[in-house]
Design a protein around this nucleic acid. Structure first.
Lengths: 157, 157
DNA sequence: CTGTTAATGAAAATGATTTTCATTAAATAG
DNA sequence: CTATTTAATGAAAATCATTTTCATTAACAG
């Protein structure tokens, strides 16, 4: 089998192995769900989605795997203020659209927006550079989120 | 007593009353601590600070009061990813410096920075306006946070 | 195939926050 | 000022997401 041909195993196997992690059925399943779902899954969401097919994968493993993935930078751990963490696949090899979030504080609806992203990212990069220098930080990540009321909840007032 | 002379009661009494809340000793104490402390207190931090003088104010009341203040917009509820909420006095009548946060993911140190704030705020306002229109949201708030390793933790690698 | 050790599941533990409920005390009417 | 109404409170119990413990299983190197 020529290089780059191991399609059936998913592109992440390499990265995973390189970091000294074993490839298990549970991890495979979790990565698979995450890579195929559109964002914002909680640990339990993932557990529920996986369970029918992989009934032997427990919630504990989901939490542990998400922690690993988050540390590897393959997954973003998000907080929308509803008391449970949400997880979002970071980027596939194809380069997934970068986006930020707009959260309704009433019904917890979340909008992924890409509008203005270019300007935001540009400013962020500058700011990042400045902060790194001034405060001697090695910055790995950032969040921008807007909070408010969505159309529905705003009307209910 | 002439209008505007009730200094001893703190400037927030008006706002508080207007919203139909009663003025209690506990709330007074919590507001007082918050307004005089430099940011990032957890509910328990506040409870501990208050306890010596107001030993009859319980942790439950601290949580309840923070919730009220947060809804009134007098306090920001922050999440730095360490599993407990932090609270920060929003703005006194004098207009407190607006700032954002830089968080060390290792030791949880938080830097309040005001550098680049003007550019950030300007961009944010534009973005906000655009998002409100496009997604029909009424935006009340935003967060920007950078995550990384502080000088110390970066060295420990 | 076999041994080493990371990964796992189930159950228990943790810990921040919330709820319950009987009691207390602000605000307000008299 | 006193009585009345009802929001606010404390203590203890409940909740609930996440983590830990520990005995068992299974990746993978040799």
């Amino acid at each position: 089998m020529a290089r780059g041909e191991c399609r059936r195993q998913g592109w992440w196997h390499g990265k995973f192995r390189d970091c000294g992690y074993r490839l298990t059925l549970g991890r495979e399943a979790i990565l698979d769900i995450l890579s195929r779902s559109e964002g914002h899954l909680s640990a339990e969401d993932i557990y529920v989605k996986i369970h029918p097919r992989y009934s032997n994968v427990g919630l504990t493993t989901v939490y542990r795997t998400l922690d690993v993935l988050s540390n590897l930078g393959m997954v973003y751990k998000l907080d929308f203020g509803d008391g449970r963490a949400r997880y979002e696949f970071a980027e596939g090899p194809k380069g997934v659209h970068h986006h930020h979030h707009l959260v309704c504080t009433q019904c917890n609806k979340v909008v992924d927006y890409t509008d203005f992203i270019d300007e935001e990212v540009e400013l962020l990069q500058q700011t990042e550079k400045g902060l790194e220098k001034k405060y001697n930080f090695k910055i790995n990540n950032h969040i921008i989120q807007f909070y408010g009321l969505c159309e529905k909840c705003s009307g209910k007032k």
